[in-house]
């Protein structure tokens, strides 16, 4: 079967909207509804965060949603069931974001087999080092038709950016600041210079994340990349308005 994400990047080259949400939040069974509603409202790509209590790359908003989801009784087994359920109708590309230990404890082979079987198109594992990926995971992911996305940050060297570009099998996740998710909003001159530097170095599609929250930041980010990722701001909206607020929010971001 074709990888839905690869197909997306082949056909759409601009204004790609990737929405991140934490599975099992606000309510444990919201996962399916959120995926369907996001696709319906016009998200191009959906990144499903696997709740974890030790998320080194994530700020307070995403951490709190993860803790709440764990309290709600989240398990990976349940997540794969929910993705299977959503896939009955949804055709939007789906990416899972989690941490190495979650894969290790579930069993890496079993994890990727479940991903492929339930209809996951790609993975983001921010704490998986590139050398370990290349040695132990690359072939396995490819075998299950799962793309893999690396994060690039402002302090990443040109040499390393090129290396990540060649290793990446999905898009490159351009972290807009050297902080954790949800740290600040708005885009500075300095960040624009950084986005331009990256564009000159890579050939993979790129999406900008961290600090994207509304139409203004989304539009600016899309000037320098194929699209952008919204996470913390979307979760904040969900906390306030629940799934009923999704359509209005996506429309406001699209403008």
């Amino acid at each position: 079967m074709n990888n839905r994400m690869t197909a997306l990047f082949e056909t759409k080259k601009e204004n790609i909207l990737n929405i991140y949400f934490t599975a099992g939040y606000p309510n444990i069974d919201d996962t399916v509804t959120i995926i369907k509603q996001l696709e319906h409202s016009g998200a191009d790509l959906i990144e499903v965060g696997i709740p974890y209590s030790d998320p080194l790359a994530d700020g307070p908003t995403i951490q709190e949603s993860g803790t709440a989801a764990l309290k709600n009784g989240f398990t990976l087994k349940l997540l794969f069931e929910q993705i299977r359920e959503a896939r009955k109708t949804a055709n939007v590309p789906l990416i899972l974001m989690g941490y190495v230990n979650q894969l290790m404890q579930f069993g890496v082979e079993k994890f990727v087999a479940q991903c492929a079987d339930s209809g996951v198109d790609g993975l983001i594992i921010p704490d998986l080092p590139p050398n370990v990926f290349e040695k132990e995971y690359k072939e396995l992911f490819a075998k299950h038709n799962l793309s893999f996305t690396f994060l690039v940050t402002p302090n990443t060297s040109d040499e390393r950016i090129k290396m990540l570009d060649s290793l990446s099998t999905g898009f490159l996740y351009i972290v807009s600041s050297a902080a954790i998710t949800g740290a600040k909003s708005g885009i500075s001159e300095e960040q624009i210079a950084y986005f331009k530097r990256i564009s000159s170095l890579i050939s993979s599609p790129k999406l900008i994340g961290f600090g994207i929250s509304d139409n203004e930041t989304f539009t600016t980010a899309c000037t320098y990349a194929e699209g952008a990722i919204i996470g913390s701001a979307f979760i904040k909206m969900l906390s306030k308005e629940g799934v009923a607020g999704i359509d209005g929010y996506i429309q406001s971001v699209r403008g």
């Binding site: 790359a57 230990n101 370990v132 690396f150 940050t153 402002p154 990443t156 972290v175 902080a179």
Partner: peptide, 12 residues
């Protein structure tokens, strides 16, 4: 051991 951290921290 090793180092399993997000890339922004790995650089540091």
């Amino acid at each position: 051991g090793g180092s399993f951290v997000p890339p922004q921290l790995q650089v540091i």
